[in-house]
């Protein structure tokens, strides 16, 4: 009987949601393939995470040391490499997050184990994992197999496996371990966290959001959508490409690297619907999307869709509201 490892992701004294999503999916895989579920915690001294994790796993292997309080790829990959060599887990799951993107590929080279990233489903076929991924920004899916190996590394897309509220609690065994001796001096040193979400307005509090994406085309075109937002009494927000181009400040950005929003109505103008954006609007009551591209992924998550030129729709809305 083998093991499934889940690498615990945490920041500023809190376990990140992705951790529970991975533990939930790993539990399901353990049930169908009779593996044991082990949560691997690399955290600060007395992190306070261990009891919580024991409810989700058969075992928690905890390294608690102040050098590990803040993620450091150098230290983490060295410790995980040793641990994986010692236990040879069938699967090791990590989040497809900033952490995971830094850590997992390096760990794959170090351990010699194959890696598939950003997976939205994991199955096993004949004792090997088979994963499903999205490619071309979600326009297509791919089914991916691995070269035979003693173990496999997988990074999991945030939000792909949402645990229900009533997950049955386990009573996992806690194994505390000391940091191995002779760790290499890390090449990266943490300085500080910087909050990039603060600004003049808080889009997370808005009841009605008028949101723009790449489809707005030119910076000059933002004014017309801003007028519409003002006319509606709505707050203006946007997706990543608009901030990347410096057309709006970062505090307007909805999505994983921006803010999660929860308006009653979310109007998406020219937003294609990359998963990083969609993850930020799961709390929205009703999503209305306007996009020229009928195949845009946003229409898969919106409640209402309009496949048309966003400016035509915006102008018509303005006309009606202006006369009202």
């Amino acid at each position: 009987m083998g093991e499934i490892f889940v690498v615990v992701e945490h920041r500023k004294g809190e376990i990140r949601e992705i951790t529970f999503e991975m533990l939930f999916k790993a539990r399901e895989l353990c049930q169908t393939s009779s593996h044991n579920l082990t949560a691997i915690l690399l955290g600060g001294k007395n992190s306070g995470f261990v009891d919580d994790l024991a409810k989700w796993a058969d075992r928690v292997i905890a390294f608690e040391d102040n050098r590990l309080e803040i993620f450091n790829a150098d230290l983490y990959k060295e410790i995980l490499d040793r641990l994986i060599r010692e236990h040879t887990p069938f699967l090791t799951l990590m989040g497809h997050t900033s952490w995971g993107m830094d850590l997992a590929p390096a760990l794959s080279i170090r351990t010699g184990l194959p890696l598939a990233t950003d997976c939205v489903d994991i199955q096993t076929e004949d004792g090997r994992p088979m994963v499903f991924r999205q490619i071309y920004s979600g326009k297509l899916f791919s089914k991916v197999s691995f070269k035979e190996s003693p173990g496999y590394l997988i990074t999991v897309r945030p939000g792909a496996f949402l645990p229900p509220d009533d997950v049955e609690e386990s009573q996992g065994k806690v194994v505390r371990q000391e940091l191995p001796a002779g760790l290499t001096e890390p090449k990266k040193e943490f300085i500080e966290f910087v909050d990039t979400g603060a600004g003049d307005i808080d889009i997370a509090q808005a009841e009605l959001l008028v949101s723009i994406g790449r489809g707005v085309g030119e910076e000059e075109n933002i004014a017309t959508i801003r007028e519409l937002a003002d006319l509606m009494g709505a707050t203006l927000s946007c997706s990543r490409p608009v901030v990347d181009k410096n057309w709006l400040p970062k505090f307007h950005q909805v999505g994983t690297s921006g803010k999660s929003v929860k308006p009653k109505v979310y109007l998406a103008f020219g937003i294609s619907g990359a998963f990083q954006h969609v993850a930020g609007i799961t709390g929205a009551g009703t999503v209305i999307a306007i996009n020229k591209d009928r195949k845009a992924p946003i229409f898969r998550v919106a409640d209402y869709g309009i496949a048309d030129d966003l400016f035509k729709i915006a102008d018509s809305l303005k006309e009606k509201l202006g006369n009202g």
């Binding site: 598939a116 898969r300 009606k320």
Partner: peptide
């Protein structure tokens, strides 16, 4: 180390209810 076994279109989901029509009637519905 990894092989693409198959590429396929996203599974059909219910997705958005599409509002068709000219911009004026679409705007009224929005």
């Amino acid at each position: 180390r990894t092989m693409i076994e198959e590429v396929f279109l996203p599974p059909e989901t219910e997705g958005a209810e599409m509002i068709e029509g000219d911009p004026s009637s679409v705007a009224s519905q929005i």
